[in-house]
Design a protein around this nucleic acid. Sequence first.
DNA 1: ACCTGAACACCGTTCAAGT
DNA 2: ACCTGAACACCGTTCAAGT
Lengths: 200, 200
Amino acid sequence: MKNMKKTHPYHHGNLRVELLQVAQKILLEKGVEEVTIREIAREIGVSHAAPQRHFRNRQDLLDSLAVQGFSQLEKVLKAGSLDSEVPLLERLNNAALSFAHFAADNAALFELMNSSKCCDDKLGVMKEASESAFSPILELIISGQEQKIIQSGNPLKIGLVLYATLLGITTMVNGELIERDRLDDFVLDSMDHFLKGYRY
Amino acid sequence: MKNMKKTHPYHHGNLRVELLQVAQKILLEKGVEEVTIREIAREIGVSHAAPQRHFRNRQDLLDSLAVQGFSQLEKVLKAGSLDSEVPLLERLNNAALSFAHFAADNAALFELMNSSKCCDDKLGVMKEASESAFSPILELIISGQEQKIIQSGNPLKIGLVLYATLLGITTMVNGELIERDRLDDFVLDSMDHFLKGYRY
DNA sequence: ACCTGAACACCGTTCAAGT
DNA sequence: ACCTGAACACCGTTCAAGT
């Protein structure tokens, strides 16, 4: 494993992308602590100073990982909510379950995405990424309101309360305060409750 | 600041407690990254190896900090919910606000408390501490059910959904995804919604 | 424009030795 | 039982120098 040094040209050409790939792999397999500039560089076979051309510092790399995570989450949510064959409330449940499963299956990444520390200058990008990930759920709520399935009211606010509930549940599961095999049950329960409050 | 070396006896006598105090101070003032064994030891004026008698390693110290945090949260929740002059639903709202304010005012500590990584052998203690902190809210829900203000049903489950919602909202505020000055508004809104679903 | 190698200041952790 | 000092292996970050 130590001597995997691939034969790279002096100019790697694709280093930024590969740095993020390897970083995410380490993050998921071994946790944030192990996501170190030097270890990533080692794995790729590049000097430990090379990454600095692409990321100002370690935090900058972690931030980029989080942004990437949000766009992965967005894809998952879209997949779970776009199928218009299925009735809207069911799609909402599916989206909620997709969210929860993504969080549970990528615990370390998800925790990073919801961590409070990030470079000040990346706060804007981060917010955009998370709002974008959140948008499929927002769409469902707006559709629900149009179809008179969900009560009228600021959809953004309604959506954020829903998002917060799911975020809380998954955080508790990842912290092992709720058993993993009760996750689906909890999510569906809270969705029922959510709808009881907002349904016509 | 560097030469504050107090005149300690060789045996400090109270080191464990002081380590935790200084650690929490650094955590709140400068963030987790800065909570280092060596910095804490320096501040107290003891050798950097001394803490190892009291905490197996850095994670063990962070875990203890989290447990301490839960008991602080418990106090805050009790204070906000015990005043029996006030009607029960109002006490529930107060407890929710107390929870949110604790989380926002002690962001780094709160994040640590809800972080997924902790020594395997401390998982039990951590779970107990968090359940204990949660108990005042559980009590309120049970009282509410007895007084026929809140619907019957597993109070633990109802409470966990409420807890999750609050946890999610505060996580989003601490991650600056929701503006801090909208915190109270969000909390009260979600409490309204919570009660709409569970009230008689 | 991109990467290397050496240097620096910081960590956590261990362990023989001191009190 | 508790603490010290030195040692070790690891970091992140910087910067002159190489391609």
